[in-house]
Simulated assay, not measured.
Amino acid sequence: MGSGFIVELQRNSTDWANVVAEIVKIEKKIFPKHESLARSFDEELKQKNSGLLYIEVNGEVVGYVMCSCPSSLCASITKLAVKENYRKQGHGEALLKAAIEKCRKRKVQRISLHVDPLRTAAMTLYKKHGFQVDSLIEGYYSSDRNAYRMYLDFESD
């Protein structure tokens, strides 16, 4: 397990620009151009219902998760990414747990996300944390790439 720690990106933080720049780099490396938020990252994060948690190892941003809570009932995880050389070290899982916890604190009833069925590691991680496949959406990412919509429901207490 890496000794990374999770930070919530605050709008007014002094390292906002640096962190966003780091994340944009990861974004460009991992996601195909049309799926990358690199261009619109700042706008995405300025929406008041979206949040970003990132994980730092030795001062380097190695992964991040973006959530948005458009309503009090439903949240969605819009991005979860970890730099390739930091994968399989528990960072993705740590980020996912932190995002789930953040949504739970907001008392949302459901978290949903979309995942490429071919990304087995991601699928396994989400299922491990209770996400269930809702439906297959054909051509979600591009004409030849589908997505599973998955969700996690919280018990209302």
Results as ranks from 00 to 15, higher is better:
S3K: 06
V7S: 07
E8G: 07
N12A: 08
D15Q: 05
A17N: 09
N18W: 10
V20M: 05
E22N: 14
E22Y: 00
I23K: 02
V24Q: 12
I26G: 13
I26E: 11
I26M: 09
K29V: 14
E35D: 04
S36Q: 03
A38R: 04
R39D: 13
D42T: 08
D42F: 04
Q47T: 14
Q47N: 15
N49Y: 13
Y54Q: 04
I55L: 15
V57I: 07
V57N: 08
G63K: 01
Y64K: 04
C67H: 09
C74M: 08
I77W: 05
K79E: 08
K79D: 13
K88V: 04
Q89Y: 07
E93K: 02
A94Y: 01
L96G: 04
K97G: 03
A98T: 09
A99I: 00
K107A: 05
Q109W: 09
R110N: 11
I111A: 09
S112F: 15
S112I: 15
V115T: 02
D116F: 02
R119A: 14
T120W: 06
M123T: 08
K128H: 04
F131R: 07
D134P: 10
E138D: 11
R145Q: 05
D153F: 14
D153T: 15
F154H: 10
D157N: 07
D157Y: 05
